[in-house]
Design a protein around this nucleic acid. Structure first.
Lengths: 152, 152
DNA sequence: GAAACAAGGTCGCTATTGCTGACCTTGTTC
DNA sequence: GAACAAGGTCAGCAATAGCGACCTTGTTTC
């Protein structure tokens, strides 16, 4: 997607001042409110930004554990990969999943209320996913940075 | 933080239907609008939810690379760790940073426009961070899941 | 069992806001 | 100079957020 300077100013303002009204957004981006609003619509339609939403902090609602979970799978045929990917996306405790180059096939970011809860999630949900060969967990100790703000 | 059933219903509704108005939110959570609104204020004040905001998709604005970056540091004294953590949090390309148990000290989630851009970020920003001993990159190939919705 | 307290419910209000349409102006491209 | 894209201006309205005041209900405490 191509973003010109006005788009970038809009996106920057949305990130740094999320609570701006549409009129204020137009002001700080140096546009008048109609074209600003048209651009915002376009950015949403293009999928560059999600609908306006509240974001919940997992730590603040009791998820004390965040772990990275490295997965090796058994069979690398396309449809077997699909099976794993479709299934893992359905597990609520999995916040993120990426396929990887290198030693492991996938990395999962998993949240849990406690170590006990984490163990249950791995045992009941993750190792039961189709096509899993092995799972290797690395626990996080501290959240140093967790940002939603993309540099624009 | 303690969440009762009403809080949980509110949080669930906010995640699954981000575009509800306050009145609709009250309806679907089975509260009337005043107490619902009071709870929402409290959840925000307590830090359980961020202010309502647009979230930008890095992929959609041209960040083709997402890499996990495993860092070992040289000195583990408390103030040396602080120095690294404070500095890494300032790097815009670093979306997430967690300290880890095990072989590596930190994992960073880094975005870049291209492999070339990634290389520049590592060279100019990451290896120059204080107290870094080594950096080990694992590139992601595909985003399988990336959710902001915490199971509630 | 009376008092105190917490939480929800009801009602009402207003300035703000999102969202839109119509139309004009400017600048650039062909 | 014609055509087109993008921004600007103006106007408007219904919906909305954001309260505040007060009542009701249920639970806990003494």
């Amino acid at each position: 997607m191509d973003l010109d300077d006005s788009d970038k100013r809009i996106l920057r303002a949305l990130q740094t001042q999320p609570e701006l009204t549409m009129r204020e957004l137009a002001d700080v981006t140096g546009l008048s409110h109609s074209p600003c609003w048209r651009r915002l619509q376009r950015l949403q339609a293009d999928g560059a930004i999600t609908p306006r939403r509240f974001v919940i902090d997992p730590e603040a609602v009791g998820y004390e554990i965040l772990a990275f979970c490295f997965v090796k799978i058994s069979h690398h045929q396309r449809d077997r990969l699909r099976a794993f990917e479709d299934a893992v996306a359905q597990v609520p405790a999995v916040m993120q999943c990426y396929s990887l180059s290198g030693e492991y096939d996938y990395v999962l970011q998993v949240i849990a209320a406690s170590v006990r809860d984490y163990e249950a999630t791995v045992k009941n949900a993750l190792v039961e996913l189709p096509n899993v060969q092995s799972i290797n967990t690395s626990f996080t100790l501290k959240r140093v940075k967790h940002s939603l703000n993309v540099p624009i």
